[in-house]
């Protein structure tokens, strides 16, 4: 090891720009890249996180489909948008696990002492998880096609549906960021996340029509975000008939978007403030 040249540089300009939009974006991209490299370097994790949604497609297609009767539309076309929503929602849990891990390893500590944007760690993590969700959606679209799923609208409409459910998962990621930054370790972060997700994804229109549920549950199931996102995705992929006679495509999509934007507006400042206070 030889001498390290240390010439204290003048960073007066850099500090002034810590929250400049240019740095907010660039730091977020730096962090996104870092997280994506991890996904690529651990192929086992990528493989097994893809296996679970594929299993869900196969289970619902071949185990439950016979027992579930949906009017107007074939069950495989009904369930696939639901499985998309469930998959991306579960995928967004990795935000909480990843942040808890960074916290545990002392990486957040280092980041907090760097002159980087305060939102970059979170933006980078949520964006990387969004990218992973894009990959998984593409994968199970393929699997869905193999087991009989067909889009009955058009490509643009299908992509619109995919867009809504990805945005929804992105908004959820910020919520899971709060959990990840509050959990003592990554295992706990995961255990804390799923009890929130199960009622949301299953007490919804994802896999069965809400009308088949008891009355008291229908109120919740009809208005909660997973149902509205699933209904929107389904309507955009399969047409108005997939709404089973309740509401219009436009109104459903607008309600879903209100949820998504609302969640994002509430959860992202919450996560950033949690990040600032975490120790």
């Amino acid at each position: 090891m030889t001498a390290t040249t240390a010439l204290p540089a003048d960073y007066s300009e850099a500090y002034a720009r810590e929250e400049d939009i240019k740095w907010v974006v660039r730091d977020a991209l730096t962090m996104t890249k870092r997280n994506l490299i991890a996904y690529v370097r651990i192929p086992e994790a990528a493989f097994f996180s893809s296996v679970q949604p594929i299993m869900f497609v196969l289970l619902f297609r071949y185990v439950f489909a016979g027992a579930i009767n949906v009017p107007h539309i074939g069950y495989v076309d009904y369930m696939m948008p639901g499985i998309f929503v469930q998959t991306v929602a579960f995928g967004s849990v990795s935000t909480s696990i990843g942040l808890a891990e960074d916290l545990q390893k002392g990486l957040i500590e280092r980041f907090r002492a760097l002159p980087m944007s305060r939102s970059a760690v979170l933006a980078g993590r949520t964006t990387a998880d969004l990218c992973r969700n894009v990959f998984v959606v593409a994968l199970i679209t393929g699997v869905g096609y193999l087991v009989g799923f067909r889009v009955h609208t058009g490509l643009m409409s299908f992509l619109g549906g995919v867009g809504i459910l990805l945005l929804f998962a992105y908004a959820l990621s910020w919520g899971f960021a709060v959990i990840g930054l509050s959990a003592p370790n990554s295992e706990t972060a995961q255990v804390m996340s799923f009890p929130l997700l199960f009622p949301l994804t299953f007490a919804s229109s994802s896999f069965v029509p809400v009308k088949t549920m008891p009355g008291w549950l229908q109120g919740f199931a009809n208005h909660q975000p997973v149902s509205l996102v699933a209904n929107s995705a389904r309507a955009l992929m399969e047409g108005k008939v997939a709404l089973l006679g309740s509401g219009t495509v436009g109104a459903t999509v607008v309600q879903a978007l209100i949820w998504v934007v609302g969640l994002l507006i509430i959860l992202s400042p919450l996560a950033v403030s949690r990040y600032r206070r975490v120790s």
Binding site: S12, E18, A38, G106, R110, A113, P115
Partner: peptide, 24 residues
């Protein structure tokens, strides 16, 4: 923010990313 631009910190735990290479 200004302080962060003039300091360096090596904490007690080696705060490095396991999945990245040394150069990365």
């Amino acid at each position: 923010a200004r302080v962060r631009s003039v300091i360096g910190l090596a904490g007690q735990n080696a705060a490095v990313d396991e999945n990245l290479t040394g150069l990365e």
